[in-house]
């Protein structure tokens, strides 16, 4: 991408640019609650209806099953719908459509019918939102066969992954970390580009411990790597970017080198995606491990409301402490 024009953008702005680009394909339709006139509750679709019209950027009734089910029908009939659900906590009425129809139409018709759609779901906490607005239940999607699950952590990946998701021949659950929508700006290419689905990013090389994260938690993971560096511990930072299909090779190669792994996510601990990563590491790299795999996660509690939410979301200190534990005595 050297030499290309770039613009400094937040993730929300990068996604907006990616959606605008996607709409240049006439089969793309954006549908969701308040995505048109107001540009969505997070303004990710800001200005798109004015530019492409109310037939292409569609304000829907308040009905998540209807949104996902209609998107399914559109996709089966040759359109490329991008559905927006306002918050993960509101996605469950549409979950039946995802599990029983979207994820399985290719298999139940042996490729005759497909549902190439993208479901964008803002998720995660950290902004002191109302109840049901802070959930991080990505595992309910990663557990369903037939779905790809993508989680960008930064603007440049958000735009490239979105472009890849829209072009993907299969359904993609596109999880957007609410806390990262505006917390970080970076130069994002103006032209179209894809960040491939299923490829993790090694953001920072290191030889002592592998820090594995995704989504909004990457901010704490990056900061933790800085803190560890100042203590002489070289942390390799992996941003998974895609949960399904998981880039196992990148994770395993790193852990084989460092011998230590810390997995970070804000989702509850039990049955969280970290368990899947930890299990994969022990299957593929047990004899390289020099310490137990650490998980730094949210707790198995309802996300506390604003005044106590800080006790839930993993902080830099917890990540550093876990990483240091893996180095003790080894």
């Amino acid at each position: 991408m050297n030499g290309q024009a770039t613009t400094e953008r937040t993730m929300a702005q990068a996604l907006n640019a990616g959606l605008r680009e996607a709409l240049s394909d006439e089969s793309v339709v954006i549908l969701g609650e308040d995505v048109g006139r107001t540009g969505g509750v997070f303004r990710v679709t800001d200005g798109l209806q004015a530019e492409y019209g109310a037939e292409r950027v569609v304000d829907t009734p308040v009905a998540e099953s209807g949104i996902v089910g209609a998107a399914f029908g559109l996709a089966v009939a040759g359109m490329r719908p991008i559905a927006e659900i306002q918050f993960m906590g509101f996605s469950y009425p549409g979950y039946d459509q995802v599990v029983n129809h979207v994820s399985r139409i290719r298999n139940r018709s042996r490729h005759r019918f497909t549902a190439p759609l993208v479901i964008r779901i803002p998720y995660g906490g950290g902004i002191g939102a109302a109840e049901h607005h802070s959930e991080s239940f990505e595992a309910i999607y990663t557990h369903v066969p037939g779905l790809k699950v993508v989680v960008p952590s930064r603007p440049i990946d958000a735009k490239g992954l979105l472009t890849a998701a829209v072009a993907d021949p299969d359904p993609v659950i596109f999880l957007e970390p609410i806390r990262a929508y505006r917390s970080m700006k970076e130069e994002v290419p103006d032209d179209s580009y894809e960040v491939p689905i299923g490829v993790a990013s090694i953001e920072r090389p290191g030889d002592d411990v592998t820090l594995i994260g995704y989504g909004a938690m990457m901010r704490e993971v990056r900061e933790a790597a800085e803190v560890l560096a100042s203590s002489g511990v070289g942390a390799e930072v992996i941003d998974l970017r895609t949960l399904v299909p998981l880039d196992v090779e990148t994770v395993i190669a790193s852990v084989q080198n460092t011998g230590r792994a810390v997995i970070v996510h804000e989702a509850p601990r039990t049955s969280g995606f970290g368990g899947e990563i930890a299990a994969t590491i022990q299957e593929r790299a047990l004899y390289s491990l020099r310490a137990p795999v650490e998980r730094v996660t949210g707790w198995d509690i309802v996300v506390p409301l604003r005044r106590a939410e800080k006790h839930y979301t993993p902080g830099v200190d917890r990540i550093v402490a876990a990483a240091m534990r893996t180095t003790e005595g080894h």
């Binding site: 089910g69 029908g73 089966v76």
Partner: peptide, 27 residues
């Protein structure tokens, strides 16, 4: 042949005919 495989769960498929109809309208 524009006939989807039969829906086995009850009731979830009617909205699909809204989606396919919507696609016909757009196309």
């Amino acid at each position: 042949v524009n006939v989807l495989p039969p829906s086995i769960t009850v009731g979830g498929h009617m909205i699909h005919a809204v989606g396919t109809g919507w696609a016909s309208k757009l196309q």
